[in-house]
Amino acid sequence: MSFDLSLIATSLPKILQGLGLTLNLLAVSTLFGLILAVGILLMRLSRRSWLVWPAKAYIYFFRGTPLLVQLFVIYHGLPQFGFIRQSVLWPLLREPYWCSVIALSLNTAAYVSEILRGGVLGVDKGFVEAGKALGLSKFQRTTRITAPLAVRLALPAYSNEIVSMLKSTALASTVTLMEMTGVARTIVADTFAPYEIFIAATIIYLVLVWIIQTGFTLIETYANRHVRKT
């Protein structure tokens, strides 16, 4: 088997044509996922069991099944039901893009809500008590004390989740989307050179992960500026 370096070089710009969609899937799913995660977190931390129970079930389900299976259920499974095809959601569920966004968002929401819960549980009870003693309301204590401290504690795990999400966007190629992995697979089908093409894709993913990691390091440094000593 021969190894063609120039093939890597020529395939890089082609794969980069999928970069926009990869980043789009990542950004949109991360945003929806985060919003959903905060809602699930609030339910999970509630004292009312009828709110806690569905949140736990949700987290268990989405962490307990493979993302690929979730994506297939949404893309291939749901359209088999007539009422889905008749529903107002059909214009979305018929699109592989939206199926991918929905699967990625629902999945990441389960993980992120647990990451944030870890942050909340890590906040020293003493700070909340100090807030109570000063007469701050529950809402004020949550927004001014618990949330900012919990987010700081959750940042390292959250950056991990974003990296994981970037790699998960590759699964969208299985439902026909031409993000980077989808483009790479098409080129492989034309050239029969999987080695070089996927190495090219790997290089791009590694560069993206490096950017994400560096970005989060900067954010963490800024968020923890109060920890530094004089």
Binding site: G126, A130, H226
Partner: peptide
């Protein structure tokens, strides 16, 4: 007012922000 054994100053706020938080909000 209450003073705790472990101080419990809000670590993410400056001294001034710690002091003005409750007067502003409450």
């Amino acid at each position: 007012g209450m003073v705790f054994q472990s101080f419990n100053l809000f670590p993410h706020m400056t001294v001034l922000e710690n002091l003005t938080l409750a007067p502003r909000l409450v």
